[in-house]
Simulated assay, not measured.
Amino acid sequence: MRARRMAGKRQVEDQAWFERELEGSEFRDARLRKRFGTLLEQLWKGMGQTILLACQDWASTKAAYRFMDNDRVCEQDILSGHFQATAQRFFSTDGPVLVLQDTTTFSYERERPELIGYAGSAITSAQRRGRATPSPQCGILMHSSLAVTAQGLPLGVAAIKFWSRKEFKGTATRRSKVNFTRIPIEQKESFRWIENLRQSTTRLGDPDRCVHIGDRRRTF
């Protein structure tokens, strides 16, 4: 009986969290917002499963793919509710908050990697055996800023940027041909650090409480 009560309480808490995350979502069309809510709930209940298994039927799966392929939907629309919920959690806490920046790479295997883009180079088995030939890595890069209390409690993501490279080029080769000190900072990938700092500070709304942390090796 106690286990059942605990499960029921957890379900209520999960639903409340889900509604808070969805409440501030901003889309160009109310129908898109409704579809996003349906899809988010399906993925929430089927966490870790494929889209087909989470959606449970072909009609819902096609609707999910149509939503993700819609030109009127971008990652900022999808994350707008989460950004607002993160700001609300920020204001419900006291003291300094750490805003942790870093970049994550999502790697994929595709016959035509140029359709997705390049994320960088991967260490191959050949390289491990001493043949240093860079292997193009197909994928997407994500630079995110995670807000965390000084006690280590995650509050949510305050800023995020997704991108991929149009072509793969070895770092050493590029550095020998390009003078990076003459490229405006706005045209460099490293500008994402400044962008995220500005966006997260604006969203959280209290810069005096924000302590931004990132890697020390940065070329601006």
Score class of each variant (00 low, 15 high):
residue 190 S to N: 07
residue 29 D to T: 08
residue 216 R to Q: 11
residue 94 D to Q: 09
residue 110 R to P: 01
residue 26 E to N: 04
residue 38 T to S: 09
residue 190 S to Y: 04
residue 53 L to K: 12
residue 40 L to D: 08
residue 205 G to I: 03
residue 171 T to R: 15
residue 87 A to T: 02
residue 27 F to V: 09
residue 9 K to H: 12
residue 62 K to E: 14
residue 85 A to I: 07
residue 111 E to R: 05
residue 104 T to W: 00
residue 72 R to K: 09
residue 75 E to W: 10
residue 148 V to K: 01
residue 177 K to E: 15
residue 106 F to S: 05
residue 217 R to H: 15
residue 144 S to W: 01
residue 141 L to E: 12
residue 82 H to L: 08
residue 75 E to F: 15
residue 58 W to V: 15
residue 77 D to R: 04
residue 98 L to D: 05
residue 42 Q to W: 13
residue 196 N to Y: 01
residue 44 W to L: 15
residue 29 D to C: 10
residue 124 T to L: 00
residue 167 E to A: 14
residue 79 L to Y: 02
residue 113 P to D: 09
residue 159 A to E: 09
residue 195 E to L: 13
residue 92 S to T: 08
residue 42 Q to H: 14
residue 57 D to H: 12
residue 70 N to K: 02
residue 207 P to T: 06
residue 116 I to V: 13
residue 120 G to L: 07
residue 108 Y to D: 10
residue 155 L to Q: 02
residue 11 Q to A: 15
residue 78 I to N: 03
residue 140 I to H: 02
residue 217 R to N: 15
residue 189 E to N: 06
residue 183 I to F: 10
residue 210 C to A: 04
residue 95 G to A: 08
residue 127 Q to I: 03
residue 16 A to E: 13
residue 210 C to M: 10
residue 81 G to H: 04
residue 138 C to A: 10
residue 32 L to R: 11
residue 104 T to P: 00
residue 43 L to D: 05
residue 154 P to R: 07
residue 131 R to Q: 11
residue 134 P to Y: 04
residue 174 R to D: 11
residue 151 Q to G: 12
residue 132 A to L: 11
residue 135 S to G: 03
residue 76 Q to D: 11
residue 193 W to L: 07
residue 146 L to M: 07
residue 159 A to M: 02
residue 44 W to R: 15
residue 78 I to T: 04
residue 172 A to V: 08
residue 10 R to P: 01
residue 118 Y to K: 09
residue 132 A to E: 11
residue 103 T to Q: 01
residue 36 F to M: 11
residue 92 S to G: 08
residue 81 G to N: 04
residue 161 K to G: 12
residue 143 H to I: 06
residue 74 C to Q: 08
residue 126 A to R: 05
residue 169 K to Y: 04
residue 27 F to E: 10
residue 181 T to H: 05
residue 200 S to W: 03
